[in-house]
């Protein structure tokens, strides 16, 4: 899986921001009450982000082969969601790391688009 267009890069960066945003929100709730269930509204939003993540990451980077989205009836708890989001964050970072290079001309880490270094800067691999 590689980034083919600049739009793919934008999609990936948006996904990273959303995963981190959700993770910081839900992990706060999980610290307070790990067993509490996530409500339907939040679950819908989380599933939307996971859906986007599954599309971006593909089978190679998708954290769990038998997990794609949360089921409403499974009543996922705050801690369940935190665990899953952590895994997605790590795998997304793996995917990003595999698609960035250090550009000597730019003196910065940049995304590789269609196999070639682009001018879109990014942070070093974590």
């Amino acid at each position: 899986m590689s980034l083919e267009t600049e739009a793919d890069v934008e999609k990936l960066e948006k996904l990273i921001r959303q995963l981190h945003g959700l993770h910081s929100e839900i992990s706060l709730l999980a610290k307070k009450s790990p067993n509490d269930a996530v409500n339907a509204f939040k679950l819908k939003l989380i599933n939307k982000v996971l859906q986007a993540a599954n599309e971006v990451l593909g089978d190679r980077y998708k954290p769990f082969a038998d997990f794609s989205l949360f089921e409403f009836d499974d009543l996922p708890s705050n801690s369940d969601v935190t665990v899953v989001l952590t895994q997605y964050i790590q795998e997304t970072e793996g995917y990003r790391s595999d698609n960035i290079v250090y550009s000597n001309s730019e003196h910065a880490w940049v995304y590789q688009v269609n196999g070639s270094p682009s001018k879109i800067e990014t942070t070093p691999p974590k």
Partner: peptide
């Protein structure tokens, strides 16, 4: 039951 009480309190579900 613990989870039931938890959601009874939080009203999330």
């Amino acid at each position: 039951i613990e989870q039931m009480v938890e959601v009874f309190d939080s009203k999330q579900r």
